[in-house]
Amino acid sequence: MKSPLNKGLSVKGVSFAFGRKQALVDVSFSVEPGVFCALLGPNGAGKSTLFSLLTRLFTTPDGQITVGGYDLAKHPRAALAQMGVVFQQTTLDLDLTIRQNLRYFAALHGLSGRGATVRIDAALDRLDLADRAGEKARTLNGGHKRRTEIARALLHGPSILLLDEPTVGLDAATRRAITDHVHSIADQDGITVLWATHLTDEIVANDQVVILHQGRILRDGQANEIAPDAPLEARFLDLTGQPA
């Protein structure tokens, strides 16, 4: 069910520099509601920088970012409330229980009491972790930690889910399971997904792909349009000038 308020994600003319080093140059793309968009780029392409700008960890005067219809610079709180974020490093507090982690995050988004409990219980049921809710997050394996973080990012009902290389450090089967899970979130729940990665096998044919290289966008289109005749990986390596 797609939310009528879900206006996707829009990035227009965003540039950013670390001192003299230009990290992003005039980056523009948009993601329609309910679309899974892969932000594909090699290490150092500027993906994490873009994520930091999207999540307002830092800001830039150059360009405009709109999240769920809200301008991030003008209405940061409304825009952040539309957003669920899964960072590259785990942000679970390993010494707290799974439930305590979820409750802490819910509270940061203004959810408390029974309202929060209902959402947390539903998330735990979906994760099949209801019986382990009282265990410390430290006891979870890598895949479960990631799924818990994804469920946590969705607790407040965001319209956009941002994931920064969420499969780093996971084995192939878990990677596939997480990728499929997030694709289904976009397909079935109508949540807009921006998935940063450098791995082409996490992308399916009808995903939107934005290829970022050295801070610039090289291609923006559907995966099967960017690479109609060849595997996406070969096209990606060709575009970024890296040996296959």
Binding site: T55, L57, R77, A78, L80, F87, Q88, T90, D93, L108
Partner: peptide, 14 residues
């Protein structure tokens, strides 16, 4: 460094 500060600072509060 571990990332949990990011979680805090991306909450929709000043």
């Amino acid at each position: 460094e571990m990332g949990s500060m990011r979680l805090l600072l991306t909450a929709p509060l000043p």
